[in-house]
Design a protein around this nucleic acid. Structure first.
Lengths: 149, 149
DNA sequence: GCATATATTTAAGCACACTTAATAAAAAAG
DNA sequence: CTTTTTTATTAAGTGTGCTTAAATATATGC
């Protein structure tokens, strides 16, 4: 019998497979939502950030302000985003998820959790314990911040 | 002190964060490669499958044959794909990565492994053991096949 | 106050992925 | 052998995201 693969290789393969699975599921959901990826990304950003201006979106997505403005416009038209004037600085527009927008994002998160929960449910209690421990370790070691900007 | 989050929640958050990180890294690489996502996906598919026809690509990507043919054409023009006639069935074209194509895909995989390896290197030996164990558990429970077709 | 910088929008135009419809060639079915 | 199906391509047209350039409005620096 050959020797087992080194731990690092096992971890790499695990991350590869899990992310691959997660990505495919996410793509499928976005497709059924009728939105494009960039549009959807804006919604997700606003879910985590709750409120921001157009410039913050263009900065995070690495596109021009003009591009971000156009994307936002479509989402406003679609009734997924609310765009109001910032009273403190009337140049900036405050962007926020509308109720419909929130609903869509929550559905996306639920879909993302579905296959995870099935996976988790298939584990033995002691396995679940090990996996949770590992995730805690990984997350705590992940990125100091790594914003690349 | 409040109670700790349930294991399932810890696992979900771990998977979320890891996939998010992986996705961002991958996007960055694809961008620098000068290719678009659909083009890159074809290369990745041919990396894992080594050889296939145009129809298989359109089926897997859920686009028409016409669209797949056009994408393939661009990759052939770019020198990343080889397209030859299948002698067994002269309707189908055998698609295969060229040497340049292979090189690009390998660079992508190397880039994907880079941050993982940094992460792995930051772990204590016993942590690494736990994480590897967890990954093994997860992968073995992942998807029977789940090809959705 | 006046010049400059910042935040956003609009217009014009390009590249890309995608679609449908039409074409061609080979394989499979009858 | 004729008809039908499969595989791939081409042509024409649509929608999207993106860019640059120009316009507008507000805030900031001196």
């Amino acid at each position: 019998m050959k020797h087992a693969p080194p731990l690092a290789e096992t971890i790499r393969q695990g991350i590869d497979q899990i992310t691959h699975r997660a990505f495919r599921e996410h793509l499928r959901f976005v497709k059924t939502s009728g939105l494009t990826m960039p549009q959807f990304n804006i919604l997700m950003q606003l879910h985590y950030q709750h409120e921001c201006g157009v410039s913050e979106i263009s900065a995070r997505m690495d596109i021009t302000n003009a591009a971000a403005s156009q994307l936002v416009e479509k989402l406003v038209q679609a009734g997924l985003l609310e765009r109001t004037e910032d009273p403190h600085d009337r140049r900036v527009k405050q962007l926020r998820l509308s109720d419909n927008g929130k609903q869509l994002v929550e559905a996306a998160i639920a879909a993302r959790h579905q296959w995870m929960d099935e996976l988790i449910a298939s584990l033995q209690p002691n396995e679940r314990e090990t996996v949770a421990q590992a995730m805690h370790i990984l997350v705590s070691h992940l990125p100091p911040i790594a914003d690349s900007r």
